[in-house]
């Protein structure tokens, strides 16, 4: 095991994948708890598809991927949030509309500019080789911002997630909080997408939170568990992917599925023991 790790880290791209992936996994899992509980998980999915379109556009324009995609995805995040808040429009249908629409635009842009090639596959399923030194810096900077905001606003995030109406009636600006959460989600998705792929990045947001909720009964322990599960699954996924040469994003998701199953089994056993008492 130790030899394997040593060998793995001798490749700079593997080291970079760990350095980029760990903070992203941490941030995604923290935001995921709130997004899943607020029934906003679909927003993450929508954003990743918009991100795909934006990356394709950036490639066609020969621009830097992050400078093009960050503004586009942030704007899309605010738009999707509004759609979800507005009960007159069917939020889930509107999100599907935007996400499939951006996917189609992305594919068109790619096929017209460079033709369908391996780039498409990299965008959709992620590529460990696409991480640059710059990405390491950006993902570290981003994660520090997300973690500081999350810790400082932890109590308010809890209140807004648990009961929006109460928070609003007692004087909390819930609109601002929803926008902060959407903004941070957009950033996490853009940076994480190149490692995980547009189709799989949402799993980093959804899986750890749902896994943690199998066992933890307090918001605080759900948050801690979610962060822990997320990081462990990312590491095991990267190791798995290196050892068996499997695609990175998919390997990480497989680890998340296993964690979910393990937590669910423990939950079943615990519930049976409690019932028998």
């Amino acid at each position: 095991m130790f030899d394997l790790l040593q060998e793995m880290f001798s490749y700079p791209f593997m080291l970079r994948a760990f350095l980029v992936g760990t903070p992203i996994a941490l941030c995604a899992s923290l935001l995921g708890v709130s997004l899943v509980l607020k029934r906003y998980a679909m927003i993450g999915d929508g954003l990743s598809h918009v991100g795909f379109g934006a990356l394709a556009l950036a490639a066609a324009l020969n621009a830097s991927p992050l400078t093009v995609s960050i503004p586009i995805v942030v704007v899309a995040a605010f738009l999707l949030l509004r759609l979800s808040e507005n009960s007159k429009i069917k939020g889930d249908a509107a999100i599907s509309l935007i996400s499939t629409g951006s996917l189609a635009i992305g594919v068109m842009v790619i096929s017209l500019s460079s033709g369908m090639n391996t780039d498409v596959s990299n965008y959709l399923f992620g590529s460990i080789l696409s991480m640059s030194q710059n990405d390491v810096l950006i993902s570290f900077g981003l994660s520090i911002i997300v973690i500081v905001i999350f810790v400082l606003f932890y109590n308010r995030i809890f209140a807004v997630t648990f009961d929006e109406n109460f928070a609003k009636a007692t004087g909390t600006n819930i609109r601002a909080f929803n926008m902060i959460i959407a903004f941070l989600t957009a950033l996490v998705i853009v940076v994480g997408m190149r490692l995980m792929g547009a189709l799989l990045i949402t799993s980093l947001i959804v899986f750890p939170a749902l896994t943690a909720m199998r066992l933890a009964k307090r918001f605080f322990t759900v948050t801690l568990n979610s962060a822990l599960v997320s990081i462990i699954c990312l590491w095991s996924g990267l190791i798995l992917s290196y050892k068996y040469s499997t695609p990175t994003g998919a390997s990480i998701v497989i680890c998340n599925i296993m964690a979910f199953v393990i937590y669910s089994i423990i939950q079943k056993i615990r519930d049976t023991i409690i019932r028998e008492k």
Partner: peptide, 10 residues
């Protein structure tokens, strides 16, 4: 709200 019915909080 339906959200609270399965909300993990003490």
């Amino acid at each position: 709200t339906p959200i609270q019915k399965d909300f993990p909080a003490s």
